[in-house]
Design a protein around this nucleic acid. Structure first.
Lengths: 228, 228
DNA sequence: ACTGTCTAAGAGGCTAGTCCAGTGAGCCAG
DNA sequence: CTGGCTCACTGGACTAGCCTCTTAGACAGT
């Protein structure tokens, strides 16, 4: 399944430079507002061309670590910003219990909001996701695609952009949990049933029931992962 | 307050290129796995040098939109990924109600977890944050620093790395809300009182009370913002 | 003394040209 | 049919140079 082997690592100079610069900032105890050495200077010290260094600086800028100002230099952003967050997420690949915890927090809230705010159109999307899932399971599949569609539909139905963005943020991590759970025999059917319960609560616009059903669902889906 | 005027915008070619490339991907209906045109080709079409285009590609890579492979080309990532999330957050600067909603969801959960998992050291940090806040308010200040310290301390006490990362993710947005609220006359004192209530619940390790107190606090703090 | 103007040094922005290093399709011999 | 070779094509990186922006300091003029 998936896509076979991951391509062997492809080393890129600018990536190493990002690491080195981050380390430099750390050891040199540079704080917000401080300036990095000049490009020509840095390039020489690191033994790379200015063009390559420029790429590393772009990367740091996108990551929110620095703010490059024409004529002045590269100044450190006031906060570590989103940068460290993303880096932390990517590197640590946080432990599963924490992921489940975050997922549960967000999705329970999302489910109750969906119950309150859903439109008929949202409901259609939810139902069609259930159909897809039922069909997948019927043909012996694990129903992963329907599962993903369902949770997306519920998220959409909650009409809360920031919560939706947070969900997208941890979506990749959740995916791992989901794949493992659906691989268990009998699980897809159980999962489909609990999805139906959530959908019903949302249909009736019963926020508490929706929250409860979602909580139960996530606990069902997560216990396997937790045992590992 | 803050830092006076924001520096006038500094146009950067690579930023424009990122926009154009994103638009191109959109209009050309390129999907995951598809290849972008070759660098030399793109550079010519866009009227820039390859070095500059390379910067734009680095930016897109950091954003998770593409995956540049030596000898093959720039292939679109399987998912829109975190990229669109960040972009969305930065650009739309989501509406306040949504922010408050997300904040409330996370912090209420964080408060109850903190009640269950706090160590004595966590409690000390929370208390000292309250001291800082009281002192600030005593000297006529708004107590913003103490406020921030308090919420950070509670987040730490919850010992949930993923939730903490999500909080960091929306921290900037929350800051705006906080500043406005504390600017109201009488608010700092009210805010301090509700902080104390949260701290007490955490001290007694009463999760429900902590959640309730946090919810009340956020509602108090947010109503002004919502009126705007 | 104060204030406004000018200038030059130094910072980043961008380009053009060149060479190096993977990738993969296609050809050809075994 | 398989293995190995080649070659065209793709990105990776560097160099050299010129442009624009920022800022501190000199130098007026008041």
């Amino acid at each position: 399944m998936q896509q076979g082997l991951a391509r062997v690592s492809r080393p890129r100079l600018y990536e190493q430079l990002v690491e080195q610069l981050l380390a430099y900032i750390e050891t040199a105890k540079l704080g917000p507002g401080d300036l990095l050495p000049a490009e020509r200077d840095l390039a020489e010290r690191l033994g790379v061309s200015r063009a390559t260094l420029a790429q590393a600086l772009v990367a740091l800028e996108v990551l929110g670590v620095i703010d490059v100002q024409h004529g002045t230099g590269a100044v450190l952003a006031r906060r570590p910003s989103v940068a460290s967050v993303i880096k932390g997420l990517r590197e640590h690949q946080s432990r599963l219990p924490d992921i489940v915890e975050a997922r549960s927090t967000l999705e329970v809230k999302l489910a109750s909001l969906a119950a309150l705010r859903r439109t008929d159109q949202d409901l259609e999307a939810i139902d069609s996701a259930l159909d897809v899932m039922a069909e997948e399971i019927g043909s012996g599949d694990r129903g992963a695609r329907g599962d993903e569609l369902f949770h997306q539909a519920v998220t959409t139905a909650a009409h809360s952009s920031v919560l939706a963005q947070l969900m997208a943020f941890i979506a990749e991590m959740i995916l791992e949990t989901r794949m493992e759970s659906l691989g268990q025999p009998g699980r897809p059917e159980q999962s489909l049933a609990s999805h139906r319960k959530i959908a019903e609560a949302i249909r009736k616009q019963d926020a508490d029931a929706a929250a409860e059903a979602m909580l139960a669902h996530i606990e069902l889906v997560s216990d396997v992962a937790l045992l590992k």
